[in-house]
Amino acid sequence: MYAFEIERPETVADAAAALTGEAQALGGGQTLIPTLKQRLASPEKLVSLAGIAEMKGVCTGDDGRLCVGGATTHATVAAEAGSFPALAELASHIGDPAVRNRGTIGGSLANNDPAACYPAAVLGAGATIVTNTREIAADDFFDGMFTTALNEGEIITEVKFPVAQKANYQKFVQPASRFAMVGVFVAQTAEGVRVAVTGASEGGVFRWSEAEAALSANFDASALDGLSLDADGMIGDLHGSPAYRAHLVKVMTGRAVKAAA
């Protein structure tokens, strides 16, 4: 690692003020620290968000949406997001217990790893990402692998999830990293069904609109029968070909529909 300083502010305002120049936010560090070890980043200052009480915890807002603080760990979401079981379940399978005790939803979303789990939930549930300066709809947030709508220094302070009538996340793990090789979040909402897919595409998380249409008409796995996803643009690597990933998306979508609660 290159040398840097660490600041530990206690308010969002102080954190935002500290995030200037070559400074970078530090969430749980579960992605950033391994990156720093490889010397792939050289911030002069890390601003830890872990001490900001207003960014932590899970609660239900006045509008019934589930609000998760941007610095809330995966373990906390798994334990406290009971009113949105699909989300709690998803959080409980991110990485391993020690990773879940440190890694945060804000860090995961800001990083937008194409194989990460939370982006599927956020896009699938149609959540809103709240930052220190604005609110961003999920559909406008993800911008391809490792890129988001966030500006330099912008902090994810909260994520607001409309609680779906029924939802489920199915993760097929990449055997080595145990990230999602394919992860599918299916949510049945008043406005229709949303299907968000992570892990599979070179463009990062995406919505599978054909499946959404079919499932909106008939929320049953059989509704997917005639569909197939184009392998073009799917990730191909030593863990699976694009065709295999495209196939898995359909299998996992079907399983998510069956398991949706």
């Binding site: 055997p175 080595a176 990293s177 690597d237 030593l238 863990h239």
Partner: peptide, 11 residues
Amino acid sequence: LLTGSYMDYTM
């Protein structure tokens, strides 16, 4: 080496 870490080499 495509499998140069535990991210790609499955233990």
